[in-house]
Design a protein around this nucleic acid. Structure first.
Lengths: 337, 337
DNA sequence: CTGAAAGCGCTTACAG
DNA sequence: CTGAAAGCGCTTACAG
């Protein structure tokens, strides 16, 4: 493969001119620039990654720490990984994927060998073991998710509290007064994942403010569990006419299938909102009103902040993206019922 | 971060001694080695990645080209990505994940900048556009999957033909003579993915050899489609008592749910085999006899071959891993029916 | 507007 | 068994 000397020779200039012509870091005569560009193209030249790293400039590599243990990996996780990679590519960055089995040792490795310019942490839990390491590592980092203590960290996430309030208010505005919340798998509440807690707490608080009758029940990802959970909601909340789903795609499918089997019509008998879903609810049957959890937005913003930090430095901060509600016809005014 | 000079100073030796002590490429006095090791530990030293790359030795980085377009990414894909990463880590390699949007340009980029020592191609289709590029790139590569033309390539995959034969023979051995094959989404057969074709062809061929009545129907991933497909199988094959599933996890779940609803008992009324599944059929209801498609085995073998190729060179070859059948009670002898 | 040269942190012949 | 030195391919002050 061609190196910078080959290009310089082909263009009849020095290697510094080649370097500057490519980086644009100093002005070059138009004719010179053109000859360099032609040589680059002709030789399919790309600067050696190792040499660039060594100069201490940039590695153009990001580490992505994604907690993907062999068992628990949904399509949702994948969407976030893809979103980070796509965002990084827009800045000409490639991504080294570090998986859970490897969480802290992987971060330590890429940091101390100066392999990457920065780190993205995905799916951050309240007391994430990676946080302490990050603080000690002194490598620019952005988190997707909000841990308990955020001092000195750059964090991005959907504003789950606002999303929860939005889902409650939407249904309340339509006259619903008895609203159920079908949540995630119970183990998710047990281990420190933070957003399910944040969502549930804000949901209950907003319902309290609006003096609504609400109930929360988690559910596992299987038909029997979904049925049992839905029945429990109905028992705790007789006459429930509003339902908020804060759970994964399979569970939402099962819920809709069950409603269909039982002859419960959406939205005629029950208004349903899909909250903080990272998948497309348009293909559900029926399509559900949704407050999207846009992987591309949160991850994109995290990458953008990291890049800005690398370039000019940014203050630590927690950025919560405002949720929006997309109406697809699964909610209706209580009067209609 | 400490560099090799810091370590040399701390250990009271030259930098070459540090380098050799770490690499083990020449003999070192035990006492010297120990002092170096202590210094390395004390300073948390790790060789600078850029410097190592530049010397042309090894980058310890692999590119993983995974065809993950934003829409179609199942947990199955993720399992393969994880399997490659885990396998690579065993050789002290990290993985740069390249996604579909980026397929050929990404490979070109990492190759011509000498970022990676080798490449793994996932989910290779019959006429994969990446193949031609790989041939021109001159970077060691291993494929998971088998393209139409394999000259000069290192390929690893499950032996889908053998797996198909195994599934047919298993049911035939039990006395079943009317066996349905429920396949993947039709579009998968249309675009060049190779294993669905290979599986189907071998299934039909083996059934022909055994003079069985068989039928094949593809199915999309939704309840209506699964029902329609199953009904078509029954129509084409009245009295069907054996069913082979060569489809993804959601579809298999839907099938079982449907059988349950219709009062069709497994295996009493219908013997079912899950073929080439990369997920765990133990948690299905009921658990299904399965011919696993072990992501960790195929990816592990591909990485191992790539590493061997890097180290000592290996001949191009196509390695097909022999399938096995795991019995979990979803098939029974025809006599019982 | 352009070039010659130093130096990033390693690895590895070359010497001893 | 160990060290001094060259050189990998860049980037970027330093000169002009």
């Amino acid at each position: 493969m061609a190196n910078i000397h080959d290009v310089a020779r082909a263009a009849g200039v020095s290697i510094s001119t080649v370097s500057y012509a490519i980086s644009g870091k100093r002005s070059i005569a138009a004719s010179t620039r053109q000859r360099v560009e032609e040589a680059v193209l002709a030789l399919d030249y790309r600067p050696n990654a190792g040499a660039r790293m060594l100069k201490g400039t940039r590695t153009n590599l990001l580490a992505l720490s994604a907690p993907l243990h062999a068992g628990s990996h949904g399509p949702a996780h994948m969407a976030f990984v893809l979103a980070v990679i796509n965002a990084a590519r827009a800045y000409d960055y490639d991504v080294v994927l570090l998986t859970q089995d490897d969480a802290t040792s992987g971060l330590r490795r890429v940091a101390s060998s100066a392999l990457v310019d920065g780190i993205i942490l995905l799916d951050v839990s309240q007391d994430d073991e990676r946080i302490a390491l990050i603080r000690s590592l002194n490598v620019p980092t952005a988190l997707v998710g909000v841990p308990r203590v955020t001092d000195g960290l750059i964090c991005v996430d959907l504003d789950f509290e606002r999303a929860a309030e939005m889902s409650v208010r939407r249904l309340a505005d339509q006259g619903h007064t008895r609203i159920g919340l079908l949540g995630q798998d119970p183990i998710i509440y047990e281990r420190g994942s933070n957003f399910p807690h944040r969502f549930r707490a804000a949901f209950l608080a907003e319902a309290g403010r609006l003096a609504l009758d609400v109930a929360f029940v988690p559910s596992r990802e299987n038909t029997a569990s979904v049925r049992a959970s839905f029945d429990r909601l109905n028992t705790e909340l007789p006459g429930m006419t509003g339902l908020v789903l804060h759970c994964n795609e399979p569970v939402q499918s099962i819920v809709l299938e069950m409603l269909d089997q039982r002859g419960i019509r959406v939205p005629h008998d029950l208004s349903v909102i899909s909250a903080c879903s990272s998948f497309d609810t348009e293909h559900l049957n029926p399509p559900l009103d949704v407050i999207p959890l846009p992987a591309s937005d949160t991850c994109g913003r995290a990458v953008a902040l990291l890049m800005e930090h690398l370039a000019i430095g940014v203050e630590p901060r927690v950025e919560l993206l405002p949720p929006i509600l997309v109406e697809l016809g699964s909610t209706a005014a209580r009067e209609l019922v």
